[in-house]
Simulated assay, not measured.
Amino acid sequence: MLAVAYPIGIFIDEAADFLLDKVSKRIRNRRFSQYNLDPSNDNLTAFLLLQGTDNEFVRSYFNYIRMRIRVSRCAFINFALLIVAAIIFVTASGKASWVIMSFVVLVGTMLAGLALWSWYRFSDLFAKQVSRMYQAKQQNG
């Protein structure tokens, strides 16, 4: 089972990245603009900024935020898929009622919404920290 679960997780992560890419770019561009940075600047990436630092705390912090982005992004997709699977399961079991279906949709939507909200907040935090780090690097030469 583990041999199947890990690749499926990778596929879900890539699908979530693809589905949320435009929103992610808007978050990044908005945050960079707030810091008077050019969003089209190819040097404004966490990868390039972290190459120039030996600070292990900063590297770990960026990795921590990045991991939370990925987990919340995948949770959003997983909860959305879980709603569909639960509806199919309840319908197939023959015990479908509007109360059960409403509960499934409500709980699933709340969980998906919380995951999406978390992803948005973590993505914004990541862009903010990249912006701050880039400005600090520019000021320090």
Rank of each mutant, 00 (worst) to 15 (best):
L2W: 02
V4W: 01
Y6K: 09
Y6L: 10
I8R: 03
G9Y: 00
I10L: 08
I10A: 06
I12H: 00
D13E: 04
D13T: 05
D13S: 05
E14F: 03
E14D: 13
A15V: 10
A16H: 01
A16C: 02
D17V: 11
F18P: 02
L19C: 09
L20Y: 03
D21P: 04
K22W: 09
K22V: 14
K22R: 13
S24I: 13
I27R: 01
I27W: 07
R30E: 14
R30H: 05
F32C: 03
S33G: 11
Y35Q: 11
D38G: 01
P39L: 09
S40G: 10
S40A: 14
S40R: 06
D42Y: 14
A46R: 04
A46H: 13
L48R: 15
L49H: 10
T53E: 04
D54L: 08
D54T: 10
D54M: 06
E56M: 07
E56A: 09
V58C: 13
V58L: 15
R59S: 04
S60I: 13
Y61N: 14
Y61T: 12
F62N: 09
Y64N: 15
R68G: 09
R68P: 05
V71G: 00
V71D: 02
R73N: 03
A75Q: 01
A75Y: 02
F76H: 01
I77W: 04
N78E: 12
F79G: 01
F79D: 05
F79H: 06
L82F: 04
L82V: 05
L82K: 03
A85F: 01
A86E: 06
I88R: 09
I88M: 09
F89Q: 10
T91H: 12
T91Q: 11
A92M: 15
S93Y: 13
G94T: 11
K95P: 12
A96H: 07
A96L: 14
S97Q: 06
S97V: 07
V99K: 00
V99T: 04
M101A: 08
S102E: 11
F103Y: 11
V104W: 03
V105K: 08
L106F: 09
L106M: 13
G108Y: 00
G108H: 00
G108S: 02
T109F: 04
M110C: 12
M110I: 13
L111M: 03
A115L: 09
A115M: 05
W117N: 02
S118M: 08
S118G: 05
W119L: 08
W119A: 00
W119C: 06
Y120G: 03
Y120T: 08
F122Y: 15
D124V: 06
L125P: 01
L125D: 12
F126M: 07
A127N: 03
A127Y: 02
K128A: 13
Q129M: 13
V130N: 00
R132I: 15
R132Q: 15
Y134W: 08
Q135M: 14
A136D: 15
A136N: 14
A136M: 13
K137D: 15
Q139K: 10
Q139S: 15
